[in-house]
Design a protein around this nucleic acid. Sequence first.
DNA 1: CTGTTAGCGCGTTCAC
DNA 2: GTGAACGCGCTAACAG
Lengths: 341, 341
Amino acid sequence: MSNPTIYDVARAAGVGVGTVSRVLNNSTRVSPETQQKVLSAIRALGFRRSKVARQLSTGIQHRNIGVILPFITHPSFVERLRGVQLALQDQDNDFNLVLYNVTEPGRFHEQLLAIVEQAAVDGLLIATLNVSDEQRALLVEAGIPFVTLSDGCTGQLNCISPDNIRGGYMATQHLLELGHRRIAYVGDEFPNIYGFPTSELRYRGYLAALEEYDVPFRSEYVCLGPHGEDTAHRLTETLLALPEPPTAIFAMSDIQAVGCILAIRGAGLRVPEDISVIGFDDVQLSRYIGLTTIRQHLEQSGYLGLQLLLNMLSTPDNVVPRQLPPLELVLRGTTQPYKSL
Amino acid sequence: MSNPTIYDVARAAGVGVGTVSRVLNNSTRVSPETQQKVLSAIRALGFRRSKVARQLSTGIQHRNIGVILPFITHPSFVERLRGVQLALQDQDNDFNLVLYNVTEPGRFHEQLLAIVEQAAVDGLLIATLNVSDEQRALLVEAGIPFVTLSDGCTGQLNCISPDNIRGGYMATQHLLELGHRRIAYVGDEFPNIYGFPTSELRYRGYLAALEEYDVPFRSEYVCLGPHGEDTAHRLTETLLALPEPPTAIFAMSDIQAVGCILAIRGAGLRVPEDISVIGFDDVQLSRYIGLTTIRQHLEQSGYLGLQLLLNMLSTPDNVVPRQLPPLELVLRGTTQPYKSL
DNA sequence: CTGTTAGCGCGTTCAC
DNA sequence: GTGAACGCGCTAACAG
């Protein structure tokens, strides 16, 4: 029932295993006739040589680095992946890139367990997923170096993370400096389903900026919901229906900002003339639609993350920390100074 | 110099290999003291158990399906990958997704060779890359089932491909029906660096449509260059500088269409009032910027391709062909009827 | 040219 | 509870 081995092939062809191995490896020292015999035996049995046995025997192990991320529709994963890929190619080492997709938040732990159990990976990059202490310990114990691209890690060496609080502050500050006082926040509910606190952190920056500018907090201006353009669209509609709607919106991601903009336009209003909108991330899309946003260097984070991981893999005793460039305010066309009507 | 094995650990801890194996697998039947001895020996030696040996021994091989594609900045790879991922998750089988990135066209063959040599993969999805007969034979001989997401395969069972000629025809026809007669084609030089004939096929559709509508072909309206938004931008500028510039542009991809639009706007003209633009692909971006385009169901093609591959893997004797939905004209805001000035 | 044999590193029976 | 021996499927070195 199990797959045929070279022994089966050898028997079927009436030769020794060595010969089978030789034709498999295109060794020249095989007579054409026996080669044919072996070849047809291989075909007849549907033989396929075992990768693992081969690797064990040759000692040639190609190593895998795994990237595990929630494969959500969000474009940010692409940008990070691009960076990962770039780092991999720069180093020119023969690591395979194995992609693990977390479809449901609940399955992350299960998948992590499987990865550890199978020893499937030599190093792991964990993107946009919250790693519990227990999970950290699991990986450490298994001897699998890992780097997280989390949004809320605080000064851990093996984590690449932007300063989300500061980013939230910067976005809100920009709006405040433009004279806006009725500023809404549209973001993910927190903690979000994957357990990362991105939205909360950016929200805290939002609060801090409001306080700094002595602008009273208004709970009706805070709209939280599941991540996505559609949700942001709906939330914005409720915002617009308010007796005193906001004059500016800080969306916690560019995709959500798009939802906001579409909702505003759908209500017959203009961006930025009637309402200013600022996003967060600076994904590629934002360039094309001219969205003002906070650039968090997503590609860089993937790049640095993988570079760090490779560093941990090659010289564990000499791991040099990596630093993300500071967040930048990218001015484009969706914000403008507040004008009273 | 080589990595320590359980034998080394056993010797260092003064126990047998069996015991080491037991603590490794959390077998309960180990006394706490010996467990500690083993554990510290493991730590001292920096032991990490071999993945391959373990797999060989347990017989638990997890299978890999490889996806090889040019990891260009082009967003279409993302869409296909999303489809691939979806198919993988729908089947709920424990295949690992291994990503191979072709950075330089010349390296594709080399990478393919490596994949075959290492038997790294149980099935291969080859996206947007031209596979020579020699390479096909290589894969067949190695017993690696593969599916291509090529742009120019003609009725092969293991290929998912849109009808690019027809797509080119549809795009051009749309422009012609709107009354345009001065229609430019902006596309990749062909064959492009990766050897696939996409641009040429769509161009042939363009020609066919022109002929059908008795519109004389004008070579100055055909602008070819390396793929990318920037190139399209430049090419469009030369188009606009023509004594008699086109009134409509068919760009062979959405990204290039974006380049065209930006160039047109940069010249102080409007889209579609002054010049109509139609793209090809219907990537996500196009929805946001309201680009009229030909939808080629990229995600679907990834989905169907992987589904087909899994089908070939599980029941090689009963491979059912897959069919891509027909191309669709997606009307958005970048084309309008021709108006003479 | 070809058959035989000894590992590759680990899990897993067996006896002890 | 623990050590020794065998086998996973294949390669490579050694005889013939």
